[in-house]
């Protein structure tokens, strides 16, 4: 079970969180003309990386905030966690 640092609440066990997938995916703006390919990339296509991955988690049984977690998908090492609005360099 992972130990995730919620930027709002502190270290919590994985079972308080739910996983939300790749955090680098950006939803296309509303009312904007986009190609099928762009839409498919948003809805379906994911890289399934081995290694460092920026991903979304929601602190479901806690503050209910969606947060960003930088995790190694192979080793589960967590490098950093961020608030939703935080800029990541």
């Amino acid at each position: 079970m992972l130990h995730i640092k919620c930027p709002h609440c502190g270290m919590r066990s994985q079972n308080e969180f739910s996983y939300g997938g790749d955090a680098s995916v950006k939803r296309p703006e509303l009312n904007k003309e986009i190609t099928d390919e762009e839409w498919d990339n948003f809805v379906y296509n994911r890289k399934s990386l081995r290694g460092k991955h920026l991903e979304l988690w929601q602190h479901l049984s806690g503050c209910r905030q969606w947060i960003k977690v930088e995790r190694d998908t192979a080793t589960h090492e967590i490098f950093n966690t961020y608030k939703a609005e935080e800029e990541i360099s």
Binding site: S18, G20, Q58, W66, A84, E85
Partner: peptide
């Protein structure tokens, strides 16, 4: 609820 929170917190803050 999670779905709504997702859009409010991440997509259209």
């Amino acid at each position: 609820l999670s779905h709504l929170e997702y859009y409010l917190q991440l997509v259209w803050p």
